[in-house]
Design a protein around this nucleic acid. Sequence first.
DNA 1: AGTAATAGTTTCCATAACGATACTTAATTC
DNA 2: GAATTAAGTATCGTTATGGAAACTATTACT
Lengths: 141, 141
Amino acid sequence: METITENQKLKAARKLKKMFGHIDLKTATYCPIRDVMALASDKWSILIILYLGYFPVLRFNKLKKYVYGISNKVLSERLKMLESDGYLSRTMYPEVPIRVEYQLTDFGYSYLTKLLELTEWATSHGDTVIKNRRKFKANGT
Amino acid sequence: METITENQKLKAARKLKKMFGHIDLKTATYCPIRDVMALASDKWSILIILYLGYFPVLRFNKLKKYVYGISNKVLSERLKMLESDGYLSRTMYPEVPIRVEYQLTDFGYSYLTKLLELTEWATSHGDTVIKNRRKFKANGT
DNA sequence: AGTAATAGTTTCCATAACGATACTTAATTC
DNA sequence: GAATTAAGTATCGTTATGGAAACTATTACT
């Protein structure tokens, strides 16, 4: 049942006002949603962060297995960016063969807790989306 | 202060277990995160949904002004997809010139409430990300 | 007949993103 | 000296994405 109360709408409005209220809509000042979220809500980044939440420590090749379909190039790019932004830490052990461990920082965990709200919603509402999509297609003029 | 308690980590782990526990990591079955989120966590979609939360009703050109930088093509694409997936409704008034109104559905609102968790976090932690990024760059080998 | 306004669509082009594959480094084992 | 292993990097070619600008439909007004 997808019932949204007026109260929930008001709460959302209040949050939005806080976010948007002080932004001049005409001039393009720095926008964290465009910047921060662009990386952190990227499809691959989300999966990386979730798996690092699930498995506290992961190495490159393991991560690549879990985040199936990702290429070396993209995985290493994303890892570097996520490290750069502070979500995860990279620890290198100069053994042979080399061992490198990735794990979420506290900052990363902080993000994860919010991200989970969204991915939980997505997993539990995925079927609704599929249903909606089908219905829309069927009604297609 | 970015302190994450063990309790919070445990809570996250529990949620993740629910999400990932039953998924066979080897075979690529349907994954709502890859599918649902791919659209709904897209940079433009996020902005569209947020503005439709802020302004309950918006028309094409207004939306285009708020979501500055978006092109006609992409805006109309995203609107169609978001409508198709059930996040927003499109109402056409056959006046001249034509009038079309977009607004969030209850389903869209339901998503918005979760999305806000994330965007709020992003707005309040944007400066940390910038700081981290700078530090990382400075330490660059 | 020309203009105006809204909500797009269409077309074409540029760039960015991605994927596959080969390669690198370094110490150890065979 | 060849093979092995981890963690990438490098390169190249393809695909996807996005932007700019022109165009369409519709009716009223001048």
